[in-house]
């Protein structure tokens, strides 16, 4: 009597809900990448929210106290990218230390609205490339 109706309605609701959840999930996925991964395929990472992890390059940090604009280079063993961030860096922010920034790629650089310092020391040695895999794991 009513059973098949309820069952059909239930399936329909589940299907719609499932579709909406699927869309929401894939639309909200924030990839975590290193600068060299971006460089290999920039188009894949434009127009979406990205988390970029790397080491703050030596001698690359500038901070304007009035406009609160922070800029620095984020790098892994192969590539460095310029990052701009609005706001004062957290207390533990240092050059040659791990950092993760979240935001969007814009005009060849990265515009960050969320900056997280990561306690990691995967430094850039002379001549020897950093193990990027270790870097990924340490920063995620």
């Amino acid at each position: 009597m009513k059973r098949p109706l309820y069952a059909a309605a239930g399936v329909a609701v589940l299907a719609v809900a499932g579709w909406m959840i699927y869309q929401a999930l894939y639309g909200s996925l924030v990839f975590f990448i290193l600068p060299s991964e971006y460089a290999q395929n920039p188009a894949q990472f434009e127009d979406r929210r990205i988390r970029l992890g790397g080491i703050v390059a030596n001698d690359s940090v500038t901070f304007d106290n009035d406009s609160l604009k922070l800029t620095f280079l984020i790098s892994d063993s192969l590539k460095s990218l310029p990052v701009t961030h609005h706001g004062a860096p957290p207390e533990l922010f240092r050059e040659m230390m791990g950092v993760v920034v979240e935001g969007h790629f814009k005009e060849g650089g990265f515009a960050s609205d969320n900056l997280l310092v990561r306690h990691t020391e995967v430094y850039q040695p002379d001549g020897k490339p950093i193990d990027n895999e270790a870097l990924r794991r340490a920063l995620y």
Binding site: M96, H119, T120, E121, V122, Y123, Q124, P125, D126, K128, I130, D131, A134, R137, A138, Y140
Partner: peptide, 12 residues
Amino acid sequence: QGRAIGPTQLGR
């Protein structure tokens, strides 16, 4: 566990 801070790369 693999993500735990591994040995450092040196030379800094």
